[in-house]
Nucleic acid binder design. Sequence first.
DNA 1: ATGGGCACCTGGCTGC
DNA 2: TGCAGCCAGGTGCCCA
Length: 271
Amino acid sequence: MPELPEVETTRRGIERALRGSRIKELRIYDRRLRWPIEQHLPEQLAGQQALAVGRRAKYLLLNLERGTLILHLGMSGSLRVLHAGAPRLKHDQFDLAFDSGLDLRFNDPRRFGSLHYTHEDPAQHRLLRWLAPEPFDASFDADYLWRITRTRRAAIKQVLMNGRLVTGVGNIYASEVLLRARINPRRASRRLTLKDCARLVRAVRTALNAAIRAGGTSLRNYVGTDGNPGEFRQKLYVYERDGKPCRVCGTPIRKITQGARSSYFCPHCQH
DNA sequence: ATGGGCACCTGGCTGC
DNA sequence: TGCAGCCAGGTGCCCA
């Protein structure tokens, strides 16, 4: 479910609510996430203060005094900040209870999410080590995109979705970004010009920024930490708009399948 | 090295 | 109403 804007919206909500408070208890309701939650995690976390909440790609990083919690929302996960004792709902997987009287609750119907803990530099964790630069980092620029696409035959949509090449862009925003950059999702990556790469970098940043400002996109499960849905859905140009008129030129939006995922594009605006 | 396909899991919707 | 089939926001891993 969540791509970078939803994860960033979640990060901001959590940080505001939890920064500085101390973990009382990790209550695990179901350890069977994408990787089973480590058995002895509760003892390791109890008593630690939450110093800050960071983000790397779509991972949330909860900085504690002695280590870092690495949390991924998967396809259908969401985090909410609740008052202690709030009734449990179906698919609640764990609660991180704080001494402030607030609980951080993870709900994830499909259980594709994950929770890890490390005492080391989280950037060196096996799940984070290979990730591409952050989209808002200066190192993610037209030259970078041009360089990594020179020898690739894969469609540009696939490159946007590959976390080792580009981070933060998932299936919704890949289509949205390509519309904004006026590039057809099927274009072979190595056929991109330097100017295409420059437009693409700008499009990634503007699309992600606009979605963050709207609190993310809610389609099925996603809610922010306050329980409210994101409002970017109304601003989508192409995603799940097949057959509807392009907001730029009026041509019907087309839907195709790439790598078993749906792509949406305007056959008139994108080449 | 690259890229394609599968796997993990539950639920909602469609169409017979 | 029931049920089969398909689809859904991610990504690690195996194989050619």
